[in-house]
Nucleic acid binder design. Structure first.
Lengths: 101, 101
DNA sequence: TTTATATTTGACAGATTGTGTCAAAATATA
DNA sequence: TATATTTTGACACAATCTGTCAAATATAAA
């Protein structure tokens, strides 16, 4: 069950690239990338998109990993976490359905 | 598919109370409560708990409505919304399982 | 219509959180 | 040792959050 940080750390280490290089591509300090990889900072949506481009992986897959991390963070210390996620799913389906019309 | 705001607006209107009265109990300006009821502001967790107490409804039910609203807000204009919610569910289950040990 | 009450709106202020830089400390590698 | 890499924390600035307030709007009563 990899978090977003785990995923991009693996991608980077597989290519044996230093933080410095990837961070330069993202146009941020390597300190931030280090923190992103260890889940101490939340990347911006734009950074996620850039990372997908950089590592040539599906943008949507990375976006799902990133978004789901944010959702988990939002509910993580709530007893009602699972119920809330399930209700949110219903609400999203409901909204999507009524948008089509 | 009622949002948190819809729920508390109904509770308040059923009892024919003005915003002023409920807002005073929450110790905030009525303007904020008005915005909360129409989904323009996000209440704090503490306010949700107070509202459950005030209207004598199950705290957890209100918390679920509130939390799920926040989750929907977080993903609402993402194509990957549903996938992200589903992955988040798996992650939450995974975390809960490994916490027990 | 007027008058009174309730709700909504938007400008504003202060507190909090987010986003990034930087340099020093810690860790790993040669 | 030296050298490269990663991690940490202090800091600054920007952005968002949380609430107040007063004016505008809507609703209801006389």
């Amino acid at each position: 069950m990899d978090s977003f940080g785990d995923i991009i750390r693996k991608l980077r280490e597989d290519k044996e690239l230093p933080l410095r290089t990837v961070a330069a591509f993202l146009d941020i300090d390597q300190a931030i990338l280090s923190k992103i990889e260890r889940g101490q900072r939340n990347p911006s949506r734009g950074q996620v998109v850039k990372l997908a481009e950089y590592f040539k992986v599906k943008e949507n897959d990375l976006l799902v990993a990133w978004l789901s991390d944010k959702l988990v963070y939002e509910v993580e210390d709530e007893d009602m976490a699972l119920r809330a996620l399930q209700v949110a799913e219903e609400k999203v389906k409901y909204i999507a359905k009524n948008k089509k019309k």
